[in-house]
């Protein structure tokens, strides 16, 4: 599998480590109901058949966390962007 790293270019997937669905965001720990929100954040994942935005870490490359769009049915990877907000990506 090849992942188009936005910094390094296309690389073999063995250079990356996988985390999972990029959608969950860390809840506000001070908000009411934080316990339930954290439980969902840590454990609950959708398992869609189709395109999924996932977090991958380019461990053997630029050491950037990426959001990679992968189709879970075909492994077709249709894009990758830096996980950190655009404004925070130094170029």
């Amino acid at each position: 599998m090849r992942i188009p790293c936005p910094y390094c270019g296309p690389r073999d997937s063995s250079e990356f480590s996988y985390l999972g669905d990029a959608a969950p965001t860390r809840p506000d720990p001070a908000a009411p109901g934080a316990e339930d929100a954290f439980f969902d954040y840590v454990y609950l994942r959708d398992n869609p058949a189709g395109p999924l935005e996932e977090l991958w870490f380019h461990a053997s490359g630029c050491r950037q966390w990426l959001k990679v769009l992968r189709d879970t049915r075909t492994h077709l990877i249709s894009g990758a962007v830096f996980a950190r907000p655009k404004a925070e990506v130094a170029r």
């Binding site: 870490f57 950037q64 966390w65 996980a83 950190r84 907000p85 925070e88």
Partner: peptide, 17 residues
Amino acid sequence: AKVFQHLEFCLQVLWPE
């Protein structure tokens, strides 16, 4: 390696500010 990756995650994904 795991901790370094975790710290990068915290900085890049959780608290990029």
